[in-house]
């Protein structure tokens, strides 16, 4: 079985007028939107700029807006948009390089500011359960084989695109950057390091700039809950101020 879909893609190049191009493509009914974009590139326009890598939502590279909402097209089934035109636009709040490709440098700069690393510390358990209980693992060897787990955040930039505050304030540290600070904070008990991280978040363009639209958490394809991290940071900062004020 195959599906006929019409893609309406925002085209742009530096110093050129933006326009929408439409492409009629045929894809298998199990195809995702990224497959349809690839069809458009392969059969209609080799100049079409888009970015992708893993095809299974672990790299976050392909993030775009599909019919106005931020999505990873590699896991967005075409049949979910059955019968209608699929409008594809680049992520918002990033400089556009061309077509669907945006410059994600500001995103990674903010991640780096908190010394964010992509793996968690070595773990002996999985979500609170000893890894020996995990199906397929040898119970004998499991306790002696701790593992490094990747963070849930795939660094797709969707949260920055969905954030309305980001639209109004490009200096805003952004949901992903603030969530990275929270994760770093959770990893350390060192007072100086915690002070440094909270100082980074406690800024006019930090946690206080968030106006609680919750779009980052809603749009996140990996259930990272960046908005909750922002609120948790505020709580920590308030607790710190309270303690300082009352000299506790």
């Amino acid at each position: 079985m195959s599906l006929q879909v019409t893609l309406k893609i925002l085209r742009s190049r530096p110093h050129q007028e933006q326009r929408y191009d439409t492409f009629d493509v045929t894809v298998p009914d199990a195809a995702n939107v990224l497959d349809a974009i690839e069809q458009a590139w392969a059969h209609h326009d080799r100049d079409l700029m888009f970015r992708h890598a893993c095809h299974h939502a672990s790299c976050g590279t392909c993030a775009v807006r599909i019919n106005g909402r931020e999505k990873l097209p590699c896991i967005a089934p075409v049949k979910d948009y059955d019968g209608g035109e699929i409008k594809i636009e680049p992520l918002r709040n990033f400089p556009i390089v061309g077509d669907l490709v945006v410059d994600v440098a500001p995103f990674f700069q903010n991640q780096e500011a908190s010394d964010f690393i992509i793996t968690r510390p070595t773990e002996n358990e999985l979500d609170g359960k000893a890894i020996a209980h995990t199906q397929g693992l040898d119970p004998e060897s499991a306790p002696t084989v701790p593992f490094n787990r990747f963070e849930n955040c795939v660094e797709c930039g969707i949260c920055l695109s969905a954030c309305p505050t980001m639209s109004a304030d490009y200096k805003f540290f952004g949901p992903a950057g603030l969530a990275a600070i929270k994760r770093q904070l959770d990893k350390t008990t060192d007072a100086n390091e915690r002070e440094k991280l909270l100082h980074l978040a406690d800024d006019e363009h930090g946690v206080w700039r968030c106006h609680s639209a919750w779009e980052c958490t809603e749009a996140c394809p990996q259930s990272v809950f960046p908005a909750e991290s922002i609120m948790a940071l505020r709580k920590e900062i308030n607790a710190q101020r309270f303690k300082k004020f009352f000299r506790l």
């Binding site: 106005g68 909402r69 106006h211 609680s212 639209a213 779009e215």
Partner: peptide, 22 residues
């Protein structure tokens, strides 16, 4: 004109509706 993106109803979810209403 960036503030006009607040009113891009394609993105509206409940939290965003509350944000715009406020």
């Amino acid at each position: 004109f960036r503030f006009l993106r607040w009113f891009d109803f394609r993105s509206w979810r409940l939290g965003m509706l509350a944000y715009i209403l406020n």
